[in-house]
Amino acid sequence: MRMVKPTALICLIPIILVSCGPGTEPPSQADDYLADAAAVQRGRSIFVGTCAGYCHRLTPEVIDAVYLFDCEWKHGGSDQEIFNTVTNGVPNTRMIGFGTNFPEGEDDLWKVIAFLKSNRAKCS
């Protein structure tokens, strides 16, 4: 039986810490839209019309759905994690996945994420 070297354990701990920490987020398609005012505006319009009615409000309010412009993310705050959550939904909640139903497909969802990023609080 091959034994695990103590050094392997020592190396693993930083990996674990790095994996759990804020880290550097890889660029996403949302970043491409950040400098495109029309794209951010479309993302805003979709957010207002689809997400903000009784759920993810534009300002912090007493409501059961989470506020999406602060630094706290229940299901992951990277662009790709947000993309996955919106696409697939959150089991056992009323957050149903939107799948591929955006009018212009994935591009629209990346524009929504670009809108979120452009209005997000600065997080340390």
Binding site: S45, T50, A52, G53, Y54, P103
Partner: peptide, 21 residues
């Protein structure tokens, strides 16, 4: 009362905008 774009997904909210207190 703010207007926006919405798409129908069964079981999801379908409001087309929001009222702002």
């Amino acid at each position: 009362m703010q207007k926006g774009l919405s798409m129908f997904v069964e079981g999801q909210m379908f409001t087309g905008g929001l009222p702002i207190p």
